[in-house]
């Protein structure tokens, strides 16, 4: 009983505490660099699209708001033919970023995307792609992958031996 009264008294005293509410939009919140807001597609250090169209972000998405189609250029480099995020469904969970094996998809500290028209919240690849490496500079998936996609030749990757000469009998 006493503890109940004490609780009520303590809660009552909060009337005089400083309020934590930030009165957005007059006052803006300070966002951390790793804040998970809007989704972007980044580029690799060589200026190429990082996305290889592996569909992992799409499958990780709990609200299924990512749709894409992978395609290939003449070198065999995979990229998305289209890449669409329906932000009117997005819950900003960041699973897509977690799932992305090439650091292509990244969530950035911007959340001011409200719109009067839901259709405007459907972002295509052109809307998502930014000319930056984002949080992970220096990484180019095709340099570490095994296949040849116009970035490096077989055996010239960061962790690769020269291709095996099948005709050689040497050990």
């Amino acid at each position: 009983m006493i503890s109940h009264l004490r609780t009520m008294w303590l809660v009552f005293l909060h009337l005089f505490k400083k309020k934590v509410t930030i009165e957005y939009p007059e006052e803006k919140a300070e966002l951390h660099p790793r804040y998970r807001g809007r989704i972007v597609l980044t580029k690799d250090p060589d200026g190429g699209e990082r996305c290889v169209g592996c569909y992992l972000c799409a499958v990780a998405c709990p609200v299924d708001c990512i749709a894409l189609q992978a395609t290939e250029d003449e070198n065999g480099r995979r990229y998305p033919d289209f890449f669409r995020i329906n932000f009117s469904r997005c819950i900003f969970c960041g699973y897509c970023e977690d799932a992305c094996p090439t650091y292509a998809i990244q969530l950035i500290p911007d959340f001011e995307m409200a719109d009067y028209n839901r259709q405007n919240l459907v972002f295509e690849k052109e809307d998502l792609l930014i000319d930056s490496q984002g949080k992970y500079p220096g990484y180019n998936f095709y340099r570490v992958a095994g296949l040849e996609a116009g970035v490096k030749k077989k055996g010239e990757g960061e962790n690769e031996e020269k291709p095996v000469d099948v005709h050689s009998l040497l050990p």
Binding site: C65, A67, R84, N86
Partner: peptide
């Protein structure tokens, strides 16, 4: 695990 249900036709 079918993906993209809410985005594939949203264009």
């Amino acid at each position: 695990r079918y993906s993209g249900r809410t985005a594939m036709l949203s264009n």
